[in-house]
Amino acid sequence: MFALSPEGLERVKKEMRRYETKQSAIIPALYIAQQENNGWISDEVIDYLSRVMEIPAAQINEVFKFYTMFNQKPVGRYHVQVCGTLSCHVNGAPELIEFLCRHLGVKLDEMTADGKFTISRVECLGSCGTAPMMQVNDTYYENLTPEKALQILKNLP
């Protein structure tokens, strides 16, 4: 069964006191839980949060499903999100995505066999002037070429 670490639970409780209502802590709690559950949210995670936050599971679930930053299935240790919206699209994003998928031997949203990478195509990340770009976990990498992007991924521990 999923359970947060004592520190994680403390952080969730702090978030529940941080805003005017505890509902506002659902998004922060999902972030904390996702971090402790290898980058995704399972049904178990929802049930657990429902218990500790005393909020109906259905309510947490609908928030979870609405926002794209919460993953509904396991992702690699490095979640590589390539922006595909217009400014990136006309500056080589399709080629970048194709190149990374081919070199890592995966389809979009599929994890590499070693569990290290998942490549996703996402919508505008507000990095249009430095296109094309990718976000690896929390970090932006901008002004990429396919080769440069692959090198960045290869250099990750």
Binding site: I27, P28, L30, Y31, T68, M69, F70, E123
Partner: peptide, 10 residues
Amino acid sequence: MDIYRGAGAY
């Protein structure tokens, strides 16, 4: 003043 972090929704 505080910060609230969204979660990906235009």
